[in-house]
Structures are given as structure tokens and as C-alpha cells.
Amino acid sequence: MSALLIAENLGKSFRRGGVRLAAVDGASFSVDDGETLGIVGPSGSGKTTLARLVVRLIDADVGTLQFEGADLLALRGKALRATRKRIQMVFQDPLAALNPRASVADVIGDPLRIHRLADSGGRPAAIAHLLNRVGLPAALASRAVHEISGGQRQRVAIARALATEPRLIVLDEAASALDVSARAHILKLLVELQAESGISYIFVSHDIAVVRAISHRVAIMDHGRIVETGPTAQVIAAPQSATGKALIAAVPHLMPAQD
């Protein structure tokens, strides 16, 4: 396995009331092909900022980001838009992340149209195929996004992310806004998709139980810094950092293994 994404010393600070606050401070990590990196931390630890830095929704102040061996931070305009098809993102609240006026077909069809992956004749078939991949009936395509359930919406958002056949999907609290059974189904779906296509995930969550279920490796964040990284089982069994210990201690039912 080779590294798909390498971040070194990434930093981003925001100005709030004249004071510069570091949201992400010197974060270094890597994601291998077909691997899931879980990023956990308490709220305000900079997880979401880090996720948005990786997908270039916000620009880093310092540091480097290499994707498929190329400098991701150097890309601008058209070149950046073309590269975006290789890195996708799924957001926390699927209702907020889908245009309220759009239909399911619009949402999934947009990336196909933008990257010319299917002409207008072949698009309905491509959309139906993507809906099937995320376990939804093809008939859902004509529905408006506000008409379907939260779990279905998140599947639609995943189908949109899959449309361009990306190498990496950044999932920012992608299962957090869902009820327990929908969450379990989404996690299962993500694992299946990874087994099918060898896609890599960066899975950001405050919930260490969810991260444990899906991640190969875990990075623990606090105050913008990555305080601990390691294989998931090892980090959960014996956390080295204070933040890691606190996070795991806060989930007492996690310790007796359920499997």
C-alpha cells in the first residue's frame, strides 16, 4: 500500500475579534490506498477545519498536502475543479448539504454532467446505477430531496460523492445526524463500498464508537493538534494522550468487546 494523501504541518488560523485562533496547528498525517483514517476529538478541536482543508474548501495558511504524489495546495481554478473529482466529501447534515430545490436526479447528475462522465442520454442510467450502489431504488431519482428520509438523503449524498469515482472521500460527521439504525446502515454501506472499489476514507467524528467500527487507523485531535495516531485497536486499548484517555473513558460501554 502506498500513501494516497500526505499532509505535513498543515495549519489554519482564523481571526476572531482581533485575536488569531489556530483551528488546525501543525497537523501531519497520511492516508493509504484503501484505508480509512478516523479523526476523533472533542468539539472545537479542529476536526471539521481539517476535513475542509483536505477538500480545499478552505485554504491552509501553512503546510503541504500531497495527493497522488502531486501538490494539492498549488492547484487553482480549472485544474482544481478537475482534481476535485478524485476527492469528494460527505457532510454531517444531509438536508443542509443538498440544494433544497433539487431532485435526487439533479443532485447525483450534477457531478456526472460537470465532469462529462455521462451525456444527457446516458445520465438516467448512470444515476440509477449509483442509487443501486448505495442501496436505494432507482425510482427515487425523480423525488425532491425534501421528500425523502434523513437516511435516504445521506445515501443520496454518498451517491453524489461516488459519482466521479473518487480515490478519497472525506466524511465529516457523516453518520452523526442520523438515528441509530440509519447510522449502522450507512457505516455498513461505507465498508462495503470500500471492499468493492478500494476507496480511501477520512472519517471525522466526535463519536469514538463509530470511528472504531470503520477505521483502520485513528488520529486524535485536540486544540487543533493531532495528539496521537495509531492503529485503531491499539489506540483504543491503550491511549497514550490525555485527550485519548478522556475520550475513551467517556464511553464506558465501549470497553467490553461486543464482537
Binding site: M89, F91, L98, I114
Partner: peptide, 12 residues
Amino acid sequence: DYVAAARVIGMH
């Protein structure tokens, strides 16, 4: 977020 999502899929 839906505007961020549109940027992520590479929309002009």
C-alpha cells in the same frame, strides 16, 4: 453546506 458541496463536486 450545499454550496460547499457544489464546490467539492467541481461546479463552476
